[in-house]
Design a protein around this nucleic acid. Structure first.
Length: 483
RNA sequence: GGCCCCAUCGUCUAGAGGCCUAGGACGCCGCCCUCUCAAGGCGGUAACGCGGGUUCAAAUCCCGCUGGGGCUACCA
């Protein structure tokens, strides 16, 4: 079977977590089966769609590496096609003209609601006589085209995730296909396009489950084959509510900005609603494509957990090589004005060494900037907390002792020919002992002097990486920092 | 309200009648490693919503309830 799937976002909003997951599942299915993944921009709502959002969606997909086949389709360029299908349905009496004005419908709706009744279009235009219709037409009354939902029938379809679903047509409204301004609605467009684009599997969010019966009816009226349906459980916010701006409803590009890796985000997303047959959590892209299986998609909605995403991202950063991380970190450093072109050539090894030191500690790419500041910049920010903890002494004698020890250490380092890990540690421990300073205490003070922080990579690594000159210089600043 | 869907640790999930004393992952807690913080290693915490059936046997099948979600637009 020739698998053709589509991701069909509406550019009325950003490409958010939920949309990205839908795109990912479509993409995985296509790539696994050697099928085709197409992108279709559903911009039929001219008022609410915007080119900026189209741009956001394309960029987001590109960032995630969800490459589409064929040129993207834009529904706004296909209005004539939808109109002709609507015309066809009018002819075959699968649809009818509705002359009710939106205002009239709104007031009917209000009234019904006030009376505590549930409202569905009352089909008052469905039985209009030919004369009445001609009269309206002659008067150039605007009309919408509504689908003629068959009476007392059962609509049935099989969803590959949710199984068999049956709905009584009595519960389905005569929905609008063409608005009175002649623009087509979603229902008409999806069915038309999925048919014309030969879509084999409709993979979309479960929020479309109630729409599906309408679509099946449309296929039947058009005498077209119904595609396979694969509805995906919804991703809800940590508060069990629909994804909102506070969590995942922001653009995936926001995650990029926050220092997430596309591979990590994809990996996290794929586990929302899908699980492998074993306990694997981290997947290479090849694993994912090979192991993806519609049969293992879950039915229950999932809650978005930012903590697990961070963990996942940290895993990807930890296992990445410094070379792989370098380009991303470079651009972040550039933004912060911390980038030095020397890192690209003669300082390259040192730069990579810094990344190596930090990567197991970083959860996000932006952490390289925060944690790496002492290495990338000479302007050290001394955390007040760090000074308080490691450079504060009630007893002046203690402070003097520390200063003396640091002076001795600086002197010894200055004279040190081979400034390597082994020698550095040996000297430091000796000096500490000579001044009766406990290892932790001494090193804590040095850590603050060198990095301004309470936490850093291993101190000896820091010293070697910083190099003799910077180490000595920073150690010399301690007296002015003491409290 | 009506219609549709769903229901295993706080979260993501494994589980397709006996393999379940319910497994893994995140988080949280503790220990180890240790110069701090991570990473890593080890251990712990914690769940089958409730009630009826069916069956020798039910987390797994059926029904009801409860709870949650979605849809209910001339939005998509």
């Amino acid at each position: 079977m020739n698998i053709r799937v589509r991701f069909a976002p509406s550019p009325t909003g950003h490409l958010h977590i939920g949309g990205a997951r839908t795109a990912l599942f479509n993409w995985l299915l296509a790539r696994k089966e050697g099928g085709t993944f197409i992108l279709r921009i559903e911009d039929t709502d001219v008022k609410r769609s915007s080119p900026e959002m189209v741009e956001d969606i394309l960029e987001g997909l590109q960032w995630l590496g969800l490459d589409w086949d064929e040129e993207p389709y834009y529904q706004s360029q296909r209005f004539e096609i939808y109109r002709s299908i609507a015309g066809q349905l009018l002819e075959t009496e699968g649809a009818y003209r509705c002359f009710c004005s939106p205002e009239l419908l709104e007031s009917k709706k209000q009234k019904a609601r006030a009376a505590g009744l549930d409202w569905r279009y009352d089909r008052s235009c469905r039985e209009l006589s030919e004369e009445e219709i001609q009269e309206y037409l002659k008067a150039e009354e605007p009309f919408a085209v509504r689908f003629k939902v068959p009476h007392k029938q059962k609509v049935h379809f099989e969803d590959l995730v949710y199984g068999p679903i049956d709905v009584e047509t009595e519960n389905i409204e005569d929905f609008v296909l063409l608005r009175s301004d002649k623009t087509p609605t979603y229902h008409l467009c999806v069915v038309t396009d999925d048919t014309q684009m030969n879509i084999s599997h409709v993979v979309r969010g479960a929020d479309h489950l109630p729409n599906t019966s309408k679509h099946v009816l449309l296929y039947q009226a058009l005498d077209e084959p119904v595609p396979f349906y694969v509805h995906l459980p919804l991703i809800l916010g940590p508060d069990k509510k629909r994804l909102s701006k506070r969590h995942g409803a922001t653009s995936v590009l926001e995650y990029k900005k926050q220092g997430f890796l596309p591979a990590a985000l994809k990996n996290y997303l794929v586990r929302l609603g899908w699980s492998p047959s074993d306990d694997q959590e981290i997947f290479t892209e090849e694993d994912l494509i090979a192991g993806f299986d519609i049969g293992r998609i879950n039915k229950a909605n999932a809650l978005f957990d930012p903590q697990k995403l961070e963990w996942m991202n940290g895993q990807y950063i930890s296992t990445a090589t410094p070379e792989e991380l370098a380009p991303e970190v470079k651009s972040l450093l550039k933004e912060e004005k911390l980038w030095d072109e020397a890192w690209e050539d003669k300082g390259r090894d040192q730069f990579l060494g810094i990344l190596e030191l930090l990567k197991s500690r970083a959860k996000k790419l932006t952490d390289f900037v925060d944690m790496g500041r002492p290495f990338f910049s000479d302007e050290i920010e001394y955390e007040p907390k760090a000074i308080r903890k490691n450079l504060s002494f009630a007893d002046p004698a203690e402070a003097a002792n520390l200063v003396a020890a640091l002076e001795e250490l600086s002197g010894a380092y200055r004279k040190l020919e081979v400034f390597n890990l082994e020698n550095i540690e040996k000297i430091l421990r000796e000096v500490g002992e000579r001044h009766s300073l406990k290892g932790g205490k001494f090193m804590g003070a040095i850590r603050v002097a060198l990095t301004g922080k309470t936490a850093s990579p291993g101190l000896f690594d820091v010293i070697v990486t910083l190099g003799k000159d910077k180490t000595v210089e920073r150690l010399g600043k301690v007296p002015s920092l003491l409290q």
